[in-house]
Nucleic acid binder design. Structure first.
Length: 424
DNA sequence: TCTGGGGTCCTAGGACCC
DNA sequence: TCTGGGGTCCTAGGACCC
């Protein structure tokens, strides 16, 4: 097997730069919701020492002193740019896995050509067609492709394309000896510490470990990582999207909420969003969890609670689920707290196809509800989200309304009113 | 003043069964 | 004083990813 991993460099920042070329060459960061912390950094911003996830209030001073530019996140824009990028990449292989908003694996199995040159062509095509710079990593397994991508990004000599399959064993070993073990896909903070305690500091040292012992000392994931580093495939390419086993819709609020009514509005809309995603993958739920909480970062009285709710018969109806969610909310809501977060989590997701009705279920009602939801989704898709919603979601009340987004750019590609128009 | 939102997989331990 | 062995299912929590 041979895989390539293509990922967008500073993807969110690059999307912004496509529409505002003046941002090129400047230190920019894209902030999370509520303008909370940096979730994307340009090379220039990294050079200023800004870490991933750095809170904005801690790096704000760099705007004055170093010309750092911060933008609120514009997920509609990034989602659309991602779709376009993935489509372009998909032309280069019959098998593609879209791993995240900015990363895609493709299979290069059986490709009898110069893979390094092929990687370069992919990179150049994406740049030419949508203006997003990427890096390409090629390896025998997904883990090796990830590692190659890391080299392509970190070491300028590769020019953005690193093909491990073109190197000798000794060359690969030498690269692995220079690479700290935590650069591996799947080694986070805790595992890094544990491995370090055992004297395993480099990728090379990890690859040398006995997978069976590693399974005992850690878990199966660690064993798989070692096999993958040795070129033995353990993680396969997922070319067809698998239905989600969990769906979460939650928000933190820039300005805390104290009133039950407002919290009901928020939860109602979050539930509607989650239900829409549920129907999109043609699933139902039998259980869900709602949660609310104050901010642990504020020095106000703290309260956090959640409630697991069971549904009578499997459903994906916004109407039914919202009713249950709001009823649950009233049970866990307490007065006199400053709520900073709310959300709903769907667990126990099952296919919508052969729904087993409960004894007490009115089947006709259920079918009508499904039809109603299909119409709602259709209208919201054609005329913009939130065109139709439940009355409990309130009038023009959206969770995003409570979000701080002071630096957001326009939806250049998905909103007629915000298209970029060249002036003569 | 100010710290995101969305996921996955694995393991341990409890409840329950025979 | 003594308290099986084996199995399943479920849940909570930890670790990781982007």
């Amino acid at each position: 097997m041979t895989h390539a991993l293509i990922d967008g460099n500073c993807f969110y920042g690059s999307c912004e730069r496509v529409f505002r070329p003046s941002l090129k060459g400047k230190p920019i960061v894209v902030l999370s919701n509520n303008d909370g912390c940096a979730v994307a950094r340009s090379d220039e911003a990294k050079a200023l020492g800004i870490k991933m996830g750095a809170p904005w209030f801690e790096i704000k001073h760099l705007a004055q002193s170093q010309g750092l530019i911060a933008l609120s996140s514009n997920y509609t824009l990034y989602g659309d740019m991602s779709d376009r990028m993935m489509q372009i990449i998909g032309r280069f292989s019959p098998d593609q896995e879209i791993y995240s908003i900015d990363e895609s694996f493709i299979s290069l199995k059986g490709f009898d050509l110069d893979l390094t040159a092929y990687g370069r062509t992919i990179k150049e095509t994406v740049l030419k067609e949508i203006g997003i710079p990427t890096c390409v990593g090629i390896g025998k397994t997904k883990t090796l492709a990830k590692l190659a991508n890391h080299f392509a990004k970190k070491q300028p000599a590769w020019n953005g394309v690193c093909n491990l399959t073109s190197l000798t064993r000794y060359e690969i070993a030498s690269l692995m000896k220079q690479t700290p073990v935590n650069e591996i896909w799947g080694i986070g903070r805790q595992l890094h510490k544990k491995l370090n305690d055992q004297g395993i500091k480099t990728v090379f040292e990890l690859a040398k470990l006995d997978p069976v012992t590693a399974h005992k000392n850690f878990n199966i994931l660690m064993a798989n990582m070692i096999y993958e580093l040795r070129g033995i495939e353990r993680i396969s390419l997922e070319t067809t999207p698998v239905p989600k086993q969990e769906i979460m819709s939650s928000r933190s609020f820039g300005n805390p909420i104290t009133s039950l009514t407002l919290l009901e509005n928020v939860l109602s809309e979050l539930t509607a969003r989650a239900c829409q995603r549920l129907r999109k993958q043609n699933s139902c739920i039998t259980k869900c969890m709602i949660f609310i909480g104050t901010s642990p970062y504020r020095s106000c009285p703290q309260y956090r609670n959640n409630l697991m709710i069971s549904v009578n018969a499997p459903t994906n109806s916004t109407d039914t689920i919202t009713g249950l969610a709001l009823k649950g909310l009233r049970r866990i809501f307490k007065n006199n707290f400053q709520y900073s977060k709310a959300g709903i989590l769907f667990v126990d997701i099952i296919s919508a196809e052969p729904v087993q009705g409960s004894l007490f279920d009115d089947e006709i009602q259920d079918r009508r509800s499904m039809e109603l939801m299909a119409v709602v989704d259709h209208i919201n898709c054609a005329h913009g989200k939130n065109t139709i919603r439940l009355a409990s979601a309130g009038n023009h009340m959206s969770p995003d309304w409570f979000m701080k987004q002071e630096r957001k750019t326009q939806e250049y590609t998905t909103n007629w009113n915000e298209l970029l128009i060249a002036r003569a």
